[in-house]
Amino acid sequence: MMRSILLDNTVRCVIVAFMALACIGLVLPNWILNNTMFGLARGLAVLGLLLLWRTGLISLGHSLYFGLGAYAVALLEKHTGSTDIILRLVIALTVAGVIGFFLGFVLRHYRGIFFAMLSLAFSMVLYGVLVKTEALGSTDGFSVSQTTFLGWQPASKYPLFLSIIAICIVAIIGVQFYLRSAIGYLTTSVRDNEIRVEYLGYSVARAVHIKYIISAALAGVSGALIAMSLGQVDPDSMVNWTVSGELVFITIMSGPGSVVAPFIGSITFEFLRTFAFEWAPHAWQLIVGGTLLGIIFALPEGLWSLIQRLWTKKGKVL
């Protein structure tokens, strides 16, 4: 199984591409490095949403796990002073995974709009608690210090960049591994016909539940990495429903075609926003929204379909 995963074309391309990115990272100016880091980190949460989407589920509340991951990092530092990357990631992953596990028992019974709205409700509960509690930073949030690596405090962002790349590779391999497993093959079957899946002897609820936990954990790690690369957490940028909306936005923009799509979509989004913000400070939201509309009309299968199209064309020439 593992061997077949490593021979998988997508995984091999991903590893090569990310290695290349890691090398280019050495010479990239800081702002490109920063935006790529944000893009890759956010891509993890989008990858989780993509898993749900393939089953026909859209969550409007993944900012809950994104925010839990980010706040886990900030609160860990506030209460213990620890800024170690491993500790930060482990605690973010654990908190998001455990909460996802428990909420999953409720959410696995719902589909469609009910699933979307219920997850939205859960995320807004966290938002309300954070905003009202001064000990949790209220609307101001916290600053997050630079990440240390086993006690070593690097002078540049590059080690964090490398770590994010490594985490992304692990996540992509893991998700690919999951999709190739029996429970992963249920992904589209659940969307197409739940009753038939049950008659085949599988538990649909359990399949959805596992998927939900994976996506929650991915969103948690994503939030933690964003908090680390940004140096700030606050409810409006991490937990509010607009953040969930943004994640869904990127998911749709990327398209469901591949596990690589979320990262391409998310990096594109990050640069799009940066340039829109720079060129039209009065109307940057309009540019971002207009682009999504354009992509939905022109590329209903997302940015990935564009890459796929170019790829197959070239394949024919070859």
Partner: peptide
């Protein structure tokens, strides 16, 4: 530049 969009 615009100050909107939250602290982060």
């Amino acid at each position: 530049a615009d100050e909107s969009g939250g602290n982060a």
